[in-house]
Write a protein that binds this DNA or RNA. Structure first.
Lengths: 246, 246
DNA sequence: CGCCTCATGTAAAGGTCGTTCACATGAGCT
DNA sequence: AGCTCATGTGAACGACCTTTACATGAGGCG
């Protein structure tokens, strides 16, 4: 029954030594398994081998633990988006695409973080640090949009970068929430979430006047992506940013 | 203390008479207040003036109540989207726009339903009826996309309607989740969620080759919306689907 | 080295929930 | 009038969150 707890205590002494971190890790695992809603403070404590009251020495309550995780999530999110953006290399559109994919990849590969960040009910403004982290992540998208907006072909009006950023964010978040997450919201799709988002973004960019015409890149060799940087013609070519028609 | 309950019982007798419905209504109110996560079965029972065990005569468990609400939500959702679509009157693009707005309006005006449908963790496939209701709602968007796809100007490839529908859905859902919901996910925006989504959809449609050029419609008179039905030129005019550039 | 202090952990207890079970009630059929 | 079965009750169980009083021991100080 409780010799297990005694045992653990024997191994590590009365003081845990690194409980805060252990709790965060435990919670991360539990959220990944059962969602933020199903995650329990008591379980995290058990998993760390301490009593149910111990966590309260490190977090005001369950919500604070959750928002700590959300904050870390936003930090890692920012890192991944930043890396994907890679300051716009090799060209702005390609890098932009990569950011979209990174968004979905994060949602897929870090379900616990994504859950805590967007689906746990933790208000972004619960915590100043959380809010700041969230903003830094968004700023990556925003900066990318800024660069992209500066490239609008001559003859077409330049869209507000902030608006573009919000649009892209909503597309990525929409696709991730509806189609790319745990068993919860999954629907049957005629294409992968990645392809879906890619086509969506490309069509959107074309609507802004970018001369986009790419089909799913032939796997292997990367073709010289898009007539590099300075777009030539105005108006939109009749390309097909989604897959071949059946 | 408990004379209240006695009182209620005196008013309505031992049998409630309409408990199932009362529970659904109570739950709806509670979810609107505190979110699906904070909603409690016991509270709903209290609110209906019955004991905590009574609800189990009508719902297998808390999750079944939740999914019943989600199902109703999808039904009302379908009704609102259908009404907005109005079979494509007066013209397809205008009606399509209206569907987008109806989506956001529903998310805003029926937070309890929206929450149960998309944010409560209820899996869509929990219940056959739920899944069917969800599909019927989506089919409204899909049918609209179908009609829209059939209108692609000559010279531009015709996008798969299903893909369009998924794109539109993800945009609407993304905007609603991130910007248009309860205090939870609210960020500061340079424009209203409605405007944001409208611009997003218009730009997207333009990317598909639709000759869209509309600024936020002057409130009051509806201008002859878009060169009616059969679009003339191919290629995309350099219009500005978002607001004036400050 | 011995002692003190304070951060960190524990056990116990109170309140709430979800859920089940045996039992009560009474609406409607016969 | 009497029976039956859907519907509601109360009590009880185990889990959770959170608070409180108390225990432990690591690290600083004399």
């Amino acid at each position: 029954m409780s010799w297990r707890k005694e045992q653990r205590r024997a191994e590590r002494g009365y003081h845990h030594g690194n409980l805060k971190e252990a709790l965060l890790q435990a919670a991360l695992g539990l959220i990944a398994e059962k969602g933020a809603a199903g995650f329990t403070f008591a379980d995290a404590a058990r998993m760390a081998g301490v009593s149910a009251a111990a966590p309260y020495r490190h977090f005001r309550d369950r919500d604070e633990l959750l928002s700590s995780i959300a904050q870390r999530g936003f930090e890692q999110f920012e890192a991944r988006l930043s890396a994907a953006w890679d300051d716009g290399r090799p060209d702005t559109v390609t890098a932009f695409e990569r950011v979209g994919k990174a968004y979905l990849a994060f949602a897929r590969e870090e379900p616990a973080f994504y859950n805590a960040m967007f689906e746990s009910g933790v208000p972004v403004d619960a915590n100043a640090a959380l809010q700041a982290a969230s903003e830094r992540a968004f700023n990556v998208i925003r900066a990318a949009a800024e660069r992209l907006a500066a490239l609008t072909p001559p003859g077409t009006p330049r869209p507000p970068a902030m608006m573009m950023a919000l649009h892209i964010w909503s597309m990525a978040h929409g696709v991730a929430s509806l189609f790319s997450r745990g068993d919860a919201a999954r629907r049957k799709l005629p294409m992968s979430p990645d392809e879906l988002l890619e086509a969506e973004v490309l069509i959107y960019l074309r609507g802004l006047g970018f001369p986009i015409d790419r089909r799913p890149p032939a796997r292997g060799a990367e073709p010289p992506p898009v007539p590099p940087e300075a777009p030539s013609g105005s108006g939109v070519p009749p390309g097909r940013p989604w897959g071949k028609p059946k």
